[in-house]
Design a binder for these strands. Structure first.
Lengths: 148, 148
DNA sequence: CACATACATTTGTATATACAAATATTGTTT
DNA sequence: AAACAATATTTGTATATACAAATGTATGTG
């Protein structure tokens, strides 16, 4: 990826702003690749993330605040996000009997099956995204990202 | 930044998906910091980006497709983005006399002045964002990002 | 037990963005 | 010149997201 080429500029950009632009460009690219991988299933990255969290619960229901807490990108509106998964039949929602303020959200069988297919599709996306990376590169990148 | 802590998970995540999550988390953080730096001026990051491009034109007008080409995050709707800068008085817009399909957009004096202040604010944001980074770290990070 | 407070979610509303279709202008072909 | 295609922008519309207010439920205090 060549930053200057992508944003069609000839002049040299100082390292600090250049890194931010670079991060943004990479983010755009990753988002597009992942979005495309999920397109066949008609779920957004956020929805996919919620499904993954629910699978991690191993049958235990999660409520909205737990979901929000564990989401990679925190949302102000997890209710409507779950609504969409409900419509697709990927999750079930019920009022928590012990505390009726809460809702219990679980992933359905259909959701688990769809998620498996998504995983396969995402695996391919990974290959595409990381084609130029060695294991060492990835480790080093993670170390550097930790500094943020 | 500790990925596992932020998304409140105890289990180990494989390096490939972990890096993507890491990138997303860093992106969120950068966005928030930059957004806050720009908040006093009531411009979005995208709008700021357009102002910067226009300043780079050194008085020469830019049309919408040029702007879109040079934007870090390509938008489907640059018209409405420019609308908002117009309302704030940061840019002027006129029909191109030589080709009336095009519009000529230039940054105003007021826009340039505001942009200077934004630069100062962004400079502080950089300090905040990069506090744990050495020059070497930044160079290495840019090298790794190039692999995407 | 009435009251205030805290909690968890939902709803309303404004703004942002994506995508496609519409409009206007220019260039090209016959 | 009329017809058609290409270009540049604008508009309509659907969807996404952010933020604040509203709703319903639970808990603690006098």
């Amino acid at each position: 990826m060549n930053v200057e080429e992508i944003i069609k500029t000839s002049k040299e950009i100082p390292l600090e702003p250049r890194t931010l632009i670079h991060m943004q460009l990479v983010h755009n690219k990753i988002n597009e690749t992942m979005g495309n991988a999920l397109k066949p299933f008609e779920v957004s990255l956020q929805q996919f993330n919620v499904l993954r969290i629910l699978r991690g619960q191993k049958g235990q229901p999660a409520n909205l605040s737990t979901l929000n807490e564990r989401m990679v990108t925190k949302m102000s509106n997890t209710t409507r996000l779950v609504d969409k998964l409900l419509i697709k039949g990927f999750v079930d929602r019920a009022v928590c009997p012990s505390n009726r303020r809460k809702v219990e959200i679980v992933i359905t069988e259909s959701g688990l099956k769809a998620l498996e297919q998504m995983d396969a599709s995402l695996e391919k996306a990974h290959e595409e995204i990381y084609q130029n990376f060695s294991k060492e590169d990835l480790k080093k990148l993670n170390e550097l990202l930790d500094k943020f």
